[in-house]
Design a protein around this nucleic acid. Structure first.
Lengths: 210, 210
DNA sequence: TTAAATTTGTTGAACATCCGTCAAATTTTT
DNA sequence: AAAAATTTGACGGATGTTCAACAAATTTAA
């Protein structure tokens, strides 16, 4: 039986090619990190995941170090934009927006094994790749600030006093903790449990002090 | 002025030598992991930290992979034994013993930058080193079981119903989360904050359901 | 108690293999 | 024809492990 060779959708114009290559290399990096870890992610493994030759990495990015930074920003952005979307959908109530955070972070769309494992490798990479470290500082600063603002608004709304900064830090820490747990002890906890626990944390913080 | 050459305490008998070499290689591994990460920790860097020649690693351990497993068990043991000691000191009350857990884990003695960073690299290594993975499963199983038992006992004592497993999982997750936060965002949280937050979590779990 | 024999500890050069990067050669788009 | 995209072999350097050579500790024999 004759069969047409599977046609791989590949752009033909220069601007499209540029965008396509960068995107596939970035995604290949994340896939390689999730699958092979820091030590196993080489220029060769990345390009293999991206179906490109070795030389293309250096053609589209300054260095492997730089590509890792871009990949980190990309990964963070996929999570952050999903959170932003869900918080917008939640309306104007700061409590609802706070509840939307764990719901978005632990949704099946974003909290995939691949993304969990990739994040874990980046947490490790932060200490050794200066570009990734700087990117994380920027990105994490915003994240903390936004969450702190929501806690402050929620506390004001309910007329209670609250250390919004510490509450935000606690929530983010718990989210990171479950993200880590799901990555390492996959069988022992679940995304649903993570959402329940973080939601409970938010509600507990927003009760008037005894 | 004459001065005695600084005498490096070094064992002279065979059994002592064996113990000494294994210990310094294990500690050198942890130091190298904390300082240089997974990718930067080579047989050469380990032996350099341990003041030994490259060949000794293979003389005292089957392989680098095996040494990493032993180092992981050693690191975990230093934390676990400190926790056990503090829980024993806490007496018979399960609530006191639960409170002793975050206090011990985030004590200055155990929660050092080196130990934090070393643990972070092991969390990454778990997925790629089968020996480390198996060691973690054993060790973490006990940890979860003990904590679950304490929650169950505390709930029974207070006559309240509680999903002890989920409460234990939540506490461990929060501890891991702060361990991670302290490692990555050192300036944004503190050991004291971690203890306060975990203690609060325990107390919240042990209040009768509304 | 001494001296020889034996076991154990230690070293670093050598090995094959892989790393990130580069640049010349080739193909494809413009 | 010119420019951009792509491939591939080559580079110096680093990797984990092995092994022959040597040093020290220990046991055996006298």
């Amino acid at each position: 039986m004759l069969r047409k060779k599977a046609v791989v959708e590949r752009p033909r114009t220069h601007p499209e090619i540029n965008e396509f290559r960068r995107k596939t290399l970035i995604e290949g990096t994340i896939r390689s990190l999730a699958e092979h870890g820091v030590a196993g992610t080489t220029v060769r493994s990345i390009c293999s995941e991206a179906n490109s030759s070795r030389g293309l990495m250096n053609h589209y990015f300054d260095s492997k170090e730089h590509l890792l930074e871009i990949a980190f920003r990309h990964l963070y952005q996929t999570v952050a934009s999903h959170v932003a979307k869900k918080q917008t959908q939640a309306g104007d109530d700061p409590v609802d927006q706070l509840h939307a955070l764990p719901n978005a972070v632990f949704s099946a769309k974003v909290n995939t094994p691949q993304n969990r494992n990739a994040f874990l490798t980046f947490w490790h990479e932060i200490r050794f790749n200066p570009l990734v470290r700087k990117a994380n500082q920027q990105v994490y600063g915003n994240y903390l600030e936004n969450t702190e603002r929501l806690f402050a608004a929620a506390a004001a709304e309910r007329g209670i006093s609250l250390d919004a900064r510490q509450a935000a830090m606690g929530l983010i820490t718990m989210i990171d903790g479950y993200w880590l747990s799901l990555s390492i002890y996959e069988k022992l906890s679940s995304r649903e449990e993570a959402i329940a626990c973080c939601t409970n944390y938010i509600d507990t913080q927003l009760m008037s002090p005894a």
